[in-house]
């Protein structure tokens, strides 16, 4: 648990220093850690490699520009960067810049990737332990609920789009998401993503 706290807090600290001192060394570390993940996040929405690269860059440039607004007491650095990437994706989608291919892939197709990742990132153990809780919580969800979380967070789909994709009623999408949220919230409560503990 000690380790869990410190990994997440390190990023919070790095982002705070970027905000307060325009610290380039810390920013470089944040870039190397988060940009490749933001790019994967954007690729999942069906963006081309070039679009995802460009938006991931834009996301990190916004991190640089807006870092002064970041408060470690309110959110974890990963959460704050997630919000920036999400807003960029929403903009991209609404402006119609670059047609998105509707991705219809599903959670279990990526499960292998996630597992694979565990071995691939031995060089970067610190973040991994900090993600233990959310990872476990996600794996413990029934497949359908994991699917709903996946389609919401990684594909940005609405309830009715998910219902159409999975051929289930909207009511089932909502109740499934509700249950998944309840379980994931509990795992967060035991975790450090929610921020707040740092100050």
């Amino acid at each position: 648990m000690e380790k869990v706290q410190s990994a997440s807090q390190n990023w919070n600290q790095a982002l705070t220093e970027v905000g307060e001192n325009r610290d380039r060394e810390q920013f470089a570390a944040l870039y190397q850690h988060f940009a490749p993940r933001v790019k994967t996040y954007l690729l999942r929405f069906g963006l081309s490699d070039a679009q995802a690269e460009e938006l991931a860059q834009e996301a990190l440039l916004q991190v640089w520009r807006k870092a002064e607004q970041y408060h470690a007491s309110k959110a974890a650095a990963s959460t704050w960067i997630f919000c920036i990437a999400r807003n960029l994706f929403i903009d991209q989608q609404r402006s119609g810049r670059g047609k998105l291919e509707q991705s219809t892939d599903s959670y279990h197709e990526h499960e292998g990737l996630l597992n694979h990742q565990e071995q691939a990132s031995e060089d970067d153990n610190s973040w991994q332990s900090s993600q233990k809780h959310i990872e476990d919580a996600l794996k413990e969800l029934p497949l359908m609920q994991a699917q709903l979380v996946y389609k919401s967070y990684y594909q940005g789909k609405s309830h009715s789009e998910i219902a159409a994709d999975l051929e289930i009623p909207i009511g089932s999408v909502k109740s499934g998401l509700r249950l998944a949220f309840k379980k994931l919230r509990l795992s967060l409560a035991a975790d450090s993503f929610a921020g707040g503990e740092t100050l």
């Binding site: 974890a76 996630l114 996600l138």
Partner: peptide, 11 residues
């Protein structure tokens, strides 16, 4: 915050 956790979890 769940989104942030998932982002960290991505390859």
């Amino acid at each position: 915050a769940i989104g942030g956790g998932l982002l960290e979890h991505l390859p």
